[in-house]
Design a protein around this nucleic acid. Structure first.
Lengths: 103, 103
DNA sequence: TTTGATAGTCATAAAATTCTGACTGGTTGA
DNA sequence: TCAACCAGTCAGAATTTTATGACTATCAAA
């Protein structure tokens, strides 16, 4: 058994976990697209060149677990799923804007 | 030769590179400590439990290459090096504060 | 001249992240 | 019934990131 999540993980910089979550591969792009409109799995796969299913699925799941995105099943024409920014996710929009301004 | 820095890397979300830079291991802690006072290598090693030389050295170098920290050799008693937040680095303070508020 | 503090580097090892390609399973239109 | 679209999962491989321990080099005090 490997040693993980040691107690001192809790004492680290408060922004660290959130920062790491947001910095994961494809996450900024997903977030960015989700700001303008709810995103869909296969649509992301087409819109983000180079992205792969697995990573997108993991990224979406993690963003949802963190409460930044929310899944909604749309019972329409081709029955699909939409991922919306939650209020918590929307609260990050200005942070992204600042980062973009400084990049 | 592995394929890197493809042209499409440039088209990604502008915040991505900065986000990734900031999220690297130990970086938020270094940044955090640097906000209150200039930091020193061996001092960081003692202040950050679990951190190792190599990673700290790499983190400091990357933060400096990104223009967020600046190295200053202090010609005093025990001749040492101090790492200061640059104006660009200081510009990130409010971003960290917002992230901490949302974490 | 040996000890301890300064600030690192280097090669290698281990761990975490990301990618690939195959596979599942539901719905819809031809 | 077959193909195509929907949204994924899974095992294993490749890549990237982080850690370990040994080593270098300068300076000052004992």
């Amino acid at each position: 058994m490997t040693i993980k999540n040691l107690p001192n993980e809790a004492e680290t910089c408060p922004a660290q976990a959130l920062l790491k979550l947001l910095a994961g591969k494809w996450k900024p792009e997903i977030f960015r697209l989700a700001v303008t409109a709810p995103v869909r799995f296969n649509s992301l796969l087409r819109q983000i060149p180079g992205a792969n299913k697995q990573s997108l699925a993991v990224a979406l799941r993690e963003l949802e677990e963190a409460g930044l995105l929310e899944k909604v099943v749309v019972k329409e024409k081709p029955l699909h799923v939409e991922h919306y920014l939650t209020p918590k996710g929307q609260a990050l929009i200005p942070v992204f804007q600042q980062l973009e301004g400084l990049a």
